[in-house]
Design a protein around this nucleic acid. Structure first.
Lengths: 334, 334
DNA sequence: AACGCTCACGTGAACGCTCACGGGACCAGA
DNA sequence: TCTGGTCCCGTGAGCGTTCACGTGAGCGTT
């Protein structure tokens, strides 16, 4: 009745159930998998015994003999960040089209978690795709033998592939748009997560330089709407002349939008805002967010496609094909 | 050099690599798993051979012998819906605390996908938790032997458990709040997905009845912000007297909020809006959304906890404990 | 009475890998 | 030369399940 909770617990196998029900393994298998060639009464007896013993089949043994589908592991920093869920949804969709599984992990935006996640994932999936901030050496160490596709991160060595996010042109267009609207003092709310300035900031800097305006009005912001809000206040505090801001991403932009309203600045008249990512979320706020938009569906599909090539031994896509370009999409905030 | 792409593809096993490198299985295993007791040159030779043949270890075989961790499958209708990602994030967090894995699937909000997902999931995980709209009979059929925890769905038979979402009191409070603010004509934007009216609509009806007001001003809305917008327009078209709306969830509420602004109705003065779910997203819009809020973290944790009990044979929680109550949280929209 | 068929069930084998051993080659010291 | 140790490497076994068979009982047919 009570499942034996001995001090240590050897696994309950199909054999135990068979013995308990007085039949053979195969008959147990038949009962559990709802196959023919089994008497109704016997089946019930087996099912009861299985429940009694708390038996649950080993998915490994089953998968081993049934040659089951491939599973790819998707690692993202934060499931609560809509950008990553959009990517994840895209990857899921692309994987489903191939009949594959996707295991989603988030690393809670902490680098330490990446190791644990990788270690744990390595024996569970056939390939890994995702965002990582750890070194390639560490990646190499924890993903022994698995194909790996990196997103939004340069350089790939050995069996790694990486999908590059190219926002240079998009950011250039965005700055051009702001300048054309008469803005001369454009600030930026960067992501303060990593130590070095972000690539997006560099894009901003070169775009600004191309238009002959300064790009030194930059404030770091945490990865959240609240963070964007406080960062905007800080920026406007030190640089009151700013009339437009470009942000690291849409989350921060939305926070800035909200904060602008609280400060009594109307958007886009008193303050123009341009985000990055092009989240669906940006269309929900008022005014709808202008953003340098990324095609997340393509991003996910591309990642899965590359994984497929690596897995099947086809010729993998080269760096030139593994690019997703971001384009300015106007809402009303700029 | 080129991985043999024969017309059919038998799997490349550790044995093939061993033969190709002129060593034994065990030595291959040693090389791949970075163990000691292997010569550097040999190791390199094996690694090369493995790469050459496109070998990748079977995670099933490995898991079988290493008795790997438990994995639970989380099935949600839509990853792009922030509510489900909040639940998913909570479940991931709770599972991580136990050292478990979570496989996330979405069913693209289509009932047909549920079967495919279940069928595919059943051999991959040790337990299933999630949202399902299919019959328990179908669930039973596809999840043979696995513990199942249902969310937001009544009734549980056999090995099923279900976590009940109890919004009755919260909705009652919400309606009371609206009535106290002087509203007499309150409409509702329901979810039109399923055939029968939703439970939330029933809560609304009883709450309205308790306050002596009508609850017949109901319009169905698709599960999206746009859907909420058009539904609101439709509602106001047929019932212009409405001064407050309660919505099936926050997504719809946010759409209604946006539409209200477009119709020139200011919120909450001309139209009060109360959502359901209590998404973080609701705090980003203007005015911040009032909502009958659910504790999604508790929801996820509860689900994982119950799975743990079912898996380890502990006494499972009873129906009375498997409840998450929703409470009114005021923003500014009502 | 012999045959053939169906039904219900059991028996090796195999899936691909790792673990616990065992053993040969080689070198040093007595 | 013998012993003992270290360094590599290979061999059998086993993980838990399903598949392809084999088998015997029971029945009806000729």
């Amino acid at each position: 009745m009570v499942s034996s909770s001995g001090t240590e617990s050897r696994r309950v196998t199909i054999h135990d159930v068979a013995r308990s029900a007085g039949v053979s393994r195969q008959t147990v298998s038949r009962a559990l998998n709802d196959k023919d060639e089994i008497d109704g009464a016997t089946k019930q007896r087996v099912l009861d015994a299985a429940r009694e013993l708390g038996y649950r089949p080993s998915r490994f043994a089953r998968g081993l003999v049934r040659q089951d589908t491939t599973t790819i592991g998707l690692v993202i920093p934060d499931l609560l960040n809509p950008f990553f869920t959009e990517v994840a949804a895209a990857a899921l969709e692309a994987a489903r089209a191939r009949g594959w599984h996707v295991v989603v992990y988030d690393t809670a935006d902490r680098a330490e978690e990446e190791f644990g996640t990788l270690q744990v994932i390595a024996s569970q999936v056939d390939a890994v795709v995702g965002y990582f901030s750890c070194s390639e050496q560490d990646l190499e160490r924890f993903t022994r033998g698995l194909p790996v596709v990196l997103i939004g991160r340069e350089h790939h060595t050995g069996r790694f592939s990486s999908i590059r996010i190219d926002g240079e042109e998009g950011v250039h267009t965005a700055v051009a748009h702001l300048v054309a609207a008469g803005h001369r003092h454009i600030g930026m709310l960067d992501h303060d997560g990593r130590a070095e300035p972000s690539v997006r900031r560099e894009w901003f800097a070169t775009a600004a330089a191309a238009h002959g305006i300064a790009a030194d009005r930059v404030v770091g912001a945490p990865q959240s709407a609240d963070g964007g809000g406080t960062a905007l206040r800080k920026l406007l505090g030190t640089h009151p002349e700013v009339t437009a801001v470009f942000t690291f991403n849409d989350i921060i932009a939305i926070g800035a939008l909200r904060e602008a309203r609280r400060l009594g600045r109307s958007v886009p008249e008193d303050l123009a805002v341009v985000g990055f990512d092009g989240l669906q979320l940006g269309t929900l706020v008022e005014p709808p967010l202008s953003s340098v938009a990324l095609d997340t569906r393509r991003l996910g599909a591309l990642a899965i496609d590359q994984v497929a090539r690596l897995l099947t031994g086809l010729e993998p896509l080269g760096a030139d094909d593994l690019v997703v370009r971001a384009q300015l999409r106007l809402g009303g905030s700029a």
